[in-house]
Amino acid sequence: MIEVQQITRFFGRVKAVDNVSFQVEKGEILGFLGPNAAGKTTTMRILTTYLPATHGRATVAGYNVHTDSMKVREHIGYMPENPPLYQEMRVIDFLNFVAKIKGVGAKNIGSAVTEVMGKTDIENVKNRVIKQLSKGYKQRVGLAQALVHNPDVLILDEPTVGLDPKQIIEVRELIKSLAGDHTIILSTHILPEVSMTCERVVIIDKGKVVAEDTPDNLTKALAGAERLNLVVKGPKDKIAEKLTSLQDINLITSTARKNDLVNIQIESKTKEDSRPLIAKTIIDSGWDLYELKSEGVSLEDVFLHVTTREEGTGQ
């Protein structure tokens, strides 16, 4: 549905986007993750035909963003970082206007607007002037304008930024409910957002794609550095010694608790799940195993890992 091939964009001498390529399949939600100034907005603006790329090629819904921009525009709904709202208009008038310029047929405008107000849950404010709405409602009106013509592709630039926690959850739920019918690209600098809403992630940093996969695979790829928490009954130092003698296991901390219980945290770099081996080792040594838990790797770790490696300071 979306194909990006080696896109580069300069602003003067600043290379905001550097040879970025990726694809999005029909019906997929792609998370576009990166810190501030990574080039997320610029990439999205290129896909929405707002900005031309300096080099490279991109197609959306089968149309080239550069040579067929009007066709592309018919097939996309775009919510920029700041929702583009005419503050002095009433919600319903604004959505009618957007429906018109998005090419919704005159007969269908009424029903399209009603439907999108239902989807985004803004019917109760439809007669209010936009500037009097709360930030959360403005964000929904922003989503509604992107959705009103029922586009194949939705491009959402940091859709939850500036919202309070309750609103964030609501907007995420809304976005998830849109998947399937629409192909979605969603940018964010918030990690949990991606694992919660997206099926696939492209991580971008300083204009470059540094990783691309499902949130699960990305965290697994970094595994090898899986963390395990254990509670064992036995002598603290001996347990630590025994565990570290195993291959690919490093001790992080061990602290003694009451009743001979010991809390142990280890890092496992084994290919396979090391939990059975560890359990067996402890039982065979005659100690009691009370708890054995894998912490997994958070997307946070992945993110730090790929971005610091990029700088050459990390591994």
Binding site: M70, Y78, P80, P84, Q87, I101, K102, Q145
Partner: peptide
């Protein structure tokens, strides 16, 4: 200033 230009310039309007 308000960013509504992004709406106009990503809509199928010349």
């Amino acid at each position: 200033k308000t960013g509504t230009i992004e709406l106009l310039m990503t809509s199928p309007v010349t």
